[in-house]
Design a protein around this nucleic acid. Structure first.
Length: 273
DNA sequence: CCCCAGGTGAAAC
DNA sequence: GTTTCACATGGG
């Protein structure tokens, strides 16, 4: 879901698999407008969209499980982003997008994925392009991928694609494994370490218990929780003990919180240097 | 010319 | 077990 800045009403464009929808939040709460291209089944796209937003099932009790009553940091972050959703993205697409993400900014990751989609993906009804399947990616050379500004990530993606082509059904099996096993299996892929494995499981398989540690969350844990000098392994242990079975939801809320404060600081600095 | 960005792998303590 | 570095590319 990518914010558009033009309208007064917050609007978002989302693309996954062969779906492309635009969402609006017309009033303050409790409704979402979904606009679709001509000539597709509104009912099917609507239910697919609700699935994508994890609005198709009753809330898994994120808020009840999380320790916001005893944790003012989390409480404040939750208050700043009420109703935040964890997207249910396709497993393979999630893996691909996070393979593009290493030491890149989110807006640049977006551009890179867009270029790969345009160069190698199938056209969608609204004029944009879907991300290519891993099968397609396996037939694309590393050089061609580098032309989409993937840089050194092109080799990881090409090697992943080759592995997946040689192991039919592997991704699907991994997505169904228990989380601890799936985490280890994903890290067998070239270019996939703890962070990308965790993001793939959180956003691509709904494993709310994982807690991906990136530079932003690491900083947030240092600054907001006073955990300076803690290694990633220690932070994992802390997160598991402190946030419990919905740690991934807490991670996203804290991530959104620290990023919004950072964006506000950057905007203020531009206005008043 | 410097720094950093939703990291990972290899090599060296 | 941690620490260090290269890896491409774009933007402040």
């Amino acid at each position: 879901m990518l914010p558009e800045s033009t309208a007064m009403v917050p609007a978002f464009e989302g693309r996954w698999s062969a779906h492309a929808v635009r969402l609006r939040l017309p009033s303050e709460k409790a409704s979402i407008q979904i606009s679709l291209p001509e000539g597709i089944s509104a009912a099917e796209e609507t239910s697919a969209t609700l699935r994508y937003l994890s609005l198709d099932k009753p809330s898994q009790g994120e808020l009840d499980c999380l320790p916001w009553r005893s944790d003012p940091v989390l409480d404040q972050a939750l208050a700043a982003f009420p109703g935040l959703r964890i997207l249910a993205q396709p497993f393979g697409e999630t893996l691909f997008c996070f393979l593009c993400s290493a030491t890149k900014r989110i807006d640049q990751i977006k551009v890179i994925c867009e270029k790969v989609a345009h160069a190698h993906g199938a056209p969608l009804t609204n004029g944009s392009y879907a991300l290519p399947s891993w099968e397609t990616l396996a037939s694309v050379g590393e050089q061609e991928l580098r032309e989409c500004q993937l840089g050194y990530r092109a080799k990881y993606i090409a090697n992943c694609a080759r592995f997946l082509a040689e192991h039919p059904g592997w991704l699907e099996r991994v997505s169904a494994m228990p989380t601890a096993e799936a985490r280890i299996a994903l890290q067998q892929l070239p270019g996939v370490g703890e962070k990308i494995a965790d993001c793939t499981l959180l956003f691509g398989a709904g494993r709310l218990e994982v807690f991906p540690i990136d530079t932003w969350i690491q900083q947030a844990m240092e600054n907001l929780y006073g955990l300076r000098g803690w290694g990633k392994a220690q932070l994992q242990t802390f997160a598991k003990a402190h946030f419990g079975s919905q740690a991934g939801y807490a991670q996203q809320v804290l991530f959104a919180h620290v990023r919004s404060k950072q964006n506000a600081r950057a905007a203020a600095a531009r206005k008043n240097p």
